[in-house]
């Protein structure tokens, strides 16, 4: 009887170890899979040549990714500029100023904001943000725009990355010892002075990590951007121009990719590039967060 139990324990242990190790290999599996699929296009031209060219004519076999990379950078940049200041302020407010009740009341809202599907943000963007830009913001800036623009993509993305950034900054601020704040307050510093010169200074790496995590989220977000950014394969010149970010490119062309030679390979290369950039961002910010949180493991 006892022997049976030990055997079962050993078998379970081995089996679970196997699954665990396998899960560690998933990332490499994904990279390998996408790399194998994108090899044909890499064989047809140099990687940097493809990335720096802005000729996108799949039917002629020309695949230049520059418009899409530029589109991604523009929308992501706009989203960060819009999202970061209110996120930092809100995170500070929730963790330093707000009462416990206020904090508990705000938590479900932030959770829900994180849980809403991207299609819902996209549809809201089409219903609210696009007309707003077309009818009010663009005319006020003296340009005409269809509304489907980098700015629309940026605003929608900004809202989508808010919960990520707030959540991470909040966690980081929680790890800062109360004694530090007390010491500063005891020296006669005001609350804001303490926050700015003690808490934020100490939390700076964590805040940067939070922003980078938000950035990588914005980088890969697909459906919402696809719905509001306009999707014109041209290097954009202003935030009122339409853009065609990389994820939107992949999502939009899955239908025809198998009928044009090298097209599928080009799209897989786009996914690979996206994946590698996001993974680098993630590794960077997770490493910072690990040192900031100083967990045992």
């Amino acid at each position: 009887m006892n022997r049976l139990r030990t055997v079962r324990d050993t078998i379970a242990s081995r089996g679970m170890a196997l699954i665990t190790v396998a899960s560690g290999g998933v990332l490499f599996l994904i990279i390998l899979g996408l790399f194998l699929k994108s090899r044909p296009i890499l064989a047809s031209g140099s990687f940097f040549g493809l990335m720096a060219s802005s000729n996108w004519h799949p039917l002629k076999g020309e695949f230049g990714f520059l418009p899409f990379i530029a589109g991604t950078l523009w929308t992501t940049g706009t989203a960060l500029i819009i999202a970061v200041p209110p996120c930092i302020l809100t995170a500070i407010y929730l963790s330093e100023y707000a009462s416990k009740r206020m904090r508990q009341a705000a938590a479900p809202f932030i959770d829900l904001l994180a849980g809403l599907p991207s299609v819902i943000y996209g549809i809201w963007g089409v219903l609210a943000v696009v007309p707003l830009i077309k009818n009010h913001i663009a005319p006020a800036c003296g340009v005409s725009s269809s509304g489907y623009s980098i700015l629309a993509g940026g605003i929608v993305l900004a809202i989508m990355i808010v919960p990520v950034i707030i959540h991470v900054i909040h966690e980081v601020l929680r790890t800062i010892p109360v004694e530090l704040r007390e010491a500063s307050l005891a020296l006669g510093a005001s609350k804001w002075q303490t926050v700015r010169q003690v808490v934020l200074r100490k939390a700076l790496p964590g805040v940067i990590a939070a922003v980078v995590l938000g950035l990588s989220r914005a980088f890969g977000e697909t459906m919402a951007v696809l719905m509001v950014a306009g999707n014109v394969a041209r290097v954009p010149g202003s935030i009122f121009d339409p853009a065609y970010p990389l994820p939107a490119l992949i999502a939009n062309n899955y239908g025809e990719m198998l009928s044009v030679p090298l097209y599928d390979s080009a799209l897989m290369l786009a996914s690979l590039v996206l994946l590698i950039i996001v993974v680098i961002f993630n590794i960077f910010s997770r490493l910072i967060l690990k040192t900031v949180e100083r967990r045992v493991c």
């Binding site: 665990t20 998933v26 990332l27 899979g33 989220r217 890969g220 697909t222 993974v279 590794i283 997770r286």
Partner: peptide
Amino acid sequence: FIRFSLDVLWGIPSIVYGAF
């Protein structure tokens, strides 16, 4: 390593999972 790689996997965009 597993915790770290799960954290990184969490950050991968869903379109990449779709392509994969």
